[in-house]
Amino acid sequence: MSTDSLTQDLTQRTENSSRELLARAFFFGCAFLSIVTTISIAVLLVTEAAKFFSITAPLVGVEGETATIAEFLTGTEWRPNFTPHEFGVLPLVSATLMITFGSALIALPLGVATAIYLSEYASERARSFLKPALEILAGVPTVIYGFFALMYITPALSTIFPDISFFNLLSASIVVGIMIIPMVASISEDAMSAVPDDLRQAGYGMGATKFDVSVGVVLPAATSGVVASFILALSRAIGETMAVTIAAGSQANMLNPLNPLGYFESGMPMTAAMVQLLHGDITGGGLAYRSLFAIGLTLFVITLAMNIVSDLVAARYREEYE
């Protein structure tokens, strides 16, 4: 990005040659594709989901069966292929919420602790081992995490809790928690590294110990970055698909998110419901098929909102210290 006048003067003459224009057009096209992608996602989800809801279906010229928005958002039964259909998204949302909350319990404290350790305590050598290891933690395919949950974690849990069902939310929460630790850690660590050294020195100058500085100075100063990392990681947990599809099961039970015993039950998060809908005996133009896009839209809106909020929060710490 060159705004200074010298460069502009120098490049002015050649800027409009056909070769330059061609190159510029190509690069612009590439960047524009990202906008096209977003618009396609939004348009596709909105138009397909519009065919699902009775209030919008006439607008897109679709006749036949529809569901009301109220039924979708407040119904407590998810049975897309029964007669009569039940399209209440709440059972799915309840399972998603529980997995998100459960994984947060694991990932947030561990992630922040990891970030503090890497940013304040770890030697260069330790960092050179730990950071790639964390990357691998985030890089293991989620289908493998699902397999681990089903194959090793659930049997281990059932020796402690004999009542736990074969598919359960607890093992799903644990693996999702493990896989989002690196996300919390790396973004929080970036925020902590961005805290100016002056603040730390000032702390030490006051006679504070490393503990005091880490917890009393660096962590508060990096709050917005840490919060941003929390939001991003939770949004990742909400969108996580394969691990929960394999480990959490395929029964759309309505769960009470406040009841910890629910973690021993199986549940069907939103993403798992989408996978199941495609394998189910659903017909191409049918209501169940469109409900896929209605859940997709719900998921997209939630994650998008969380991403934007996280961006706004993160922008704060950049402004503060850069």
């Binding site: 049975r79 897309p80 292929n81 029964f82 007669t83 395929s250 029964q251 394998h279 005996d281 659903i282």
Partner: peptide, 29 residues
């Protein structure tokens, strides 16, 4: 649940109408 086709068939010949079934059972693929 719906995916196996077993459901359609069972409800048709037992309950009398395809897809008509009580819903308070554990349905699974």
């Amino acid at each position: 649940s719906q995916a196996s086709g077993t459901f359609d068939y069972f409800t048709e010949v037992i309950v009398g109408e395809e897809g008509k079934s009580r819903t308070d059972y554990k349905a699974t693929e």
